[in-house]
Write a protein that binds this DNA or RNA. Structure first.
Length: 214
DNA sequence: TAGGCCATCTGGTCCT
DNA sequence: AGGACCAGATGGCCTA
């Protein structure tokens, strides 16, 4: 999956103490390259008190240790987010999901998978694309979005129902799964828009997966 | 240049 | 007491 992402490179989380303070690493974050200094080089002057009074050595040592722990804690958090990104549907463009987008997409992705199972129950059968031996089989985890528009833009809940940023993944002649960048709210299955009709006994149906709040 | 995103520092609070 | 967690502040990098 990391290969699938290609561009998802984890920041260097190896022990920062291993690096000289002046050294920096260029890492790929999002779709840009970013300099990351090690061991708080650019912040080291903040260890002075606001009044300019020299702080007791013990206090400085405590604070330094706490900073290290906090830094490592955030690195672990970021590593966990990378793992989460790796199992979410890949983005089509060369951009990594931000933290908030990752969490929102994960939330909505779980919701979509839950809906898939619920619909399978409802229709009494598993959709074609979930049958491993069906020609239309498509592991949900490998569904990729061809276009999501701006990851941070907030599209209108009511408008844009046939958004040009829609991503349609054809799985069979009659079944489409749409992991779409589209705003959802409590009416995300809006029948008036014809996205999904619960009473319909037949496919097609669509899933809209968004990184925005629902 | 403004705004978004991020890493880091920092001090406070809670928990063990 | 010390560690984990949290939120605010700060400054760097990038994009529109």
């Amino acid at each position: 999956l990391l290969f699938c992402f290609g561009r998802v490179l984890t920041p260097d989380v190896s022990s920062p103490e291993d690096k000289p303070e002046d050294e920096f690493t260029v890492v790929n974050i999002s779709n840009y390259r970013k300099k990351v200094t090690h061991h708080g080089e650019k912040y080291k002057n903040r260890m002075k008190s606001k009044t300019g009074i020299k702080l007791p050595r013990q206090r400085v040592n405590r604070r330094t240790k706490a900073n290290d722990r906090e830094r490592h804690r955030m690195h672990r958090l970021n590593s966990a987010l990378d793992v989460l990104r790796s199992i979410l549907p890949a983005l089509p463009d060369d951009a990594q999901l931000t933290k908030i987008e990752t969490l929102r997409l994960a939330h909505n992705y779980i919701w979509a998978l839950t809906e898939t199972l619920r619909m399978a129950d409802h229709f009494g059968e598993i959709p074609d694309y979930l049958h491993p031996h069906h020609e239309a089989y498509l592991p949900v985890s490998q569904v990729c979005m061809e276009h999501m528009g701006s990851p941070t833009s907030m599209s209108s809940p009511e408008g844009d129902s046939t958004s040009t940023s829609s991503t349609w993944h054809r799985n069979s002649a009659d079944t489409w799964v749409d992991f779409n960048h589209r705003e959802h709210n409590k009416q995300y299955w809006d029948e008036s828009n014809g996205f999904y009709k619960e009473e319909s006994s037949a496919l097609p149906f669509s899933f809209y997966l968004t990184i925005n709040d629902r």
